[in-house]
């Protein structure tokens, strides 16, 4: 018990310290590396709070994909000489602003104290919705409560979330133009490593997808692993020979939201209510949605890392 509380206190302080470093390191590269470390510590915190589903998503997306996106953006900013902060060359207005920073601590400390008081004043025990989730788990088609909430009880949220992910990619495609070419020949070690790791990652993703119906895992964790495999392949210089206009690419990208909408329409016809699956079919419907969503999430995340529309004329090695 004492050991556990000690670990919790150390992890809490560690989170705050790493977050401070990520936010205030003078070198932006160092700040981003601290941010990735912060994501991994967050994953530990989720495990400590009995939320392994979130831990998996945080490690793959919060630390992995977000970190890769940040480093990719930093490389492109440095190419246009905007990668460093302007802290060193502070002008007059900046100096006046620095002086008012100390005053900023007062309202922020008051706010933090108020929020902390609000947290402490809450009742120590609230069952929340656990009882309702447990009571309806049998009809949901899966036995992992988090997957049941994500894809059955609150399926509407998840459907819109898939649309948000697709919108981010469309926004990037419309702004960024064609993707930058691979920077240079990848080092032999990276190339070899990507060839070893990619099949392994695909296997783990398929496992997480399958096991997600009854244990921690599911479409988001599996999809983000696929996205990570895509990031690795892109870093190794591999490019799929598909243009952004290719039908196959667009079909996979829209498979997640598309299949979800089709299932919503099916359930509307069967039970008269959108996304209210008939219990007899719930399990198979959820699995179909999850397979499509995994593919879409993986491809969208890799596409976001590509930093532009895929061009397609490049031959894959």
């Amino acid at each position: 018990m004492l050991l556990q509380s000690g670990f919790d206190v150390a992890l809490g302080l560690g989170l705050l310290w790493v977050a401070w470093q990520a936010l205030n390191s003078s070198d932006l590269f160092k700040a981003i590396v601290f941010f990735i470390a912060f994501g991994l510590l967050m994953a530990l915190a989720w495990v400590r709070m009995d939320a392994p589903d979130i831990a998996l998503a945080e490690a793959a997306i919060g630390a992995g994909v977000t970190g890769a996106l940040l480093l990719g953006a930093l490389a492109r900013l440095r190419a246009s000489n905007a990668g460093e902060t302007t802290m060193g060359q502070a002008g007059n207005g900046q100096r006046r602003f620095m002086a008012s920073r100390r005053l900023l601590w007062i309202p922020l400390l008051l706010m933090a104290a108020g929020l902390g008081y609000a947290v402490l004043s809450l009742p120590g025990y609230t069952p929340g919705l656990s009882a309702q989730v447990a009571a309806n788990l049998g009809a949901s088609g899966v036995s992992n409560p988090v997957t049941a909430v994500l894809l059955n009880f609150r399926g509407y949220d998840t459907l819109l979330e898939l649309v948000v992910l697709l919108l981010a990619l469309l926004g990037m495609w419309s702004m960024a133009g064609p993707a930058p070419p691979p920077s240079a020949e990848a080092a032999a070690v990276l190339d070899g490593l990507s060839r070893f790791l990619t099949p392994l990652v695909l296997l783990v993703a398929a496992y997480l997808l399958w096991v997600g119906t009854r244990a921690p895992g599911g479409a988001f964790q599996a999809g983000s692993l696929l996205g990570a495999a895509g990031v690795l392949l892109i870093l190794a210089g591999w490019r799929a020979n598909v243009a952004s206009t290719a039908l196959s690419l667009r079909l996979v990208l829209t498979a997640g939201p598309g299949v979800f909408v089709a299932v919503a329409a099916f359930s509307l016809l069967m039970s008269g209510q959108m996304l209210k699956y008939p219990p007899a079919y719930a399990g198979i419907l959820i699995l179909i949605i999850e397979i499509a969503a995994t593919l879409s999430i993986g491809l969208t995340l890799a596409g976001l890392f590509l930093g532009g529309r895929p061009r397609g004329e490049r031959k894959s090695p």
Binding site: A57, L69, L129, P145, V146, G171, L304
Partner: peptide, 24 residues
């Protein structure tokens, strides 16, 4: 409670989408 857990997983994915768009 599984409901806030699912909401946080949704939130993490939305956060990475917004981050990617903001970075570009």
């Amino acid at each position: 409670d599984a409901v806030p857990q699912a909401m946080v997983i949704t939130g993490i994915v939305v956060a990475v989408s917004a981050t990617a768009l903001a970075l570009i």
